[in-house]
């Protein structure tokens, strides 16, 4: 209990004084996860919408795979990305191993199935005739997609929050692909692992508190965005 208390006190000090190292790790974590989420959204949302409306043999199998991606062990994703980006791997020429780009790639792969599956579910949750109605009102494919996404706003925000949660809390894949290098590939989660391993529990707890604060804030923002839609 002493440890916990001193850890929290340490957290307060680090946050209060905007400790530069902690600040840069936190910012870096947000940037990396944010970019990964953005990429996952740009690709996953259109894919999810397409999947919701597609009709072709094998569609169910594709949907199954997409859902399975959500539960795919993230550390295995990390291993796969590592093997791909390793010098003698097929994508070694990119030179992304032990760089932020590698981490973003791994986190993107982790977040994409979540965004895609939950987008598809969100769209399928709407009245199936709605699409025809919008078409009949003269909407183009893009306009239909935007309108449907707005109609499914609550579910879509859940999707993005879930994807962000999965991505920002990832440890294993980020360590394997990023190397937890001080000043260049260290994020909050991997820093916590390091500090714990070193026995510096105060710092570990402090970082944990900060990570929790970030999680809560994101979820608070998500709830606010859902805002009026929830109140209906």
């Amino acid at each position: 209990m002493d440890e916990l208390a001193s850890g929290i006190w340490q957290a307060v000090k680090l946050i209060g004084t905007l400790d530069p190292e902690v600040r840069s790790i936190a910012l870096f974590s947000l940037q990396v996860s944010g970019l990964a989420l953005l990429l996952a959204a740009i690709t996953g949302i259109p894919y999810g919408i397409w999947l919701a409306f597609s009709r072709f043999p094998g569609r169910k199998i594709l949907i199954g795979f997409t859902y399975a991606g959500m539960a795919f062990p993230t550390v295995v994703v990390g291993l796969i990305v590592f093997l791909l980006l390793s010098h003698n791997g097929p994508l070694g020429f990119l030179g992304w191993l032990f760089t932020p780009f590698g981490i973003i790639a791994a986190q993107f792969l982790i977040g994409f199935p979540v965004v895609a599956s939950l987008t598809m579910a969100a769209i399928l949750g709407l009245n199936p005739e709605m699409r025809l109605q919008l078409q009949s009102l003269g909407a183009t494919r893009v306009q239909i997609s935007i309108t449907l996404l707005r109609e499914a706003k609550v579910a879509m925000i859940v999707a993005m929050a879930a994807a962000f949660g999965r991505v920002v809390t990832e440890v294993g894949a980020v360590i394997i692909v990023g190397g937890n290098i001080a000043g260049s590939t260290r994020v909050l989660t991997t820093a916590i692992v390091l500090e714990t391993r070193k026995g510096d529990f105060d710092s570990a707890i402090a970082l944990g508190v900060i990570l929790l604060m970030i999680s809560f804030s994101i979820n608070l923002i998500a709830t606010r965005l859902q805002g009026k839609a929830l109140a209906r």
């Binding site: 390793s86 010098h87 070694g92 191993l97 190397g179 937890n180 290098i181 001080a182 000043g183 590939t185």
Partner: peptide, 21 residues
Amino acid sequence: TKVKVVAVGTGQALALAARGD
């Protein structure tokens, strides 16, 4: 020059080196 330190177990360190990483 930035020295990017990847700290892992000895086995893994040598394995990484053996892959040219």
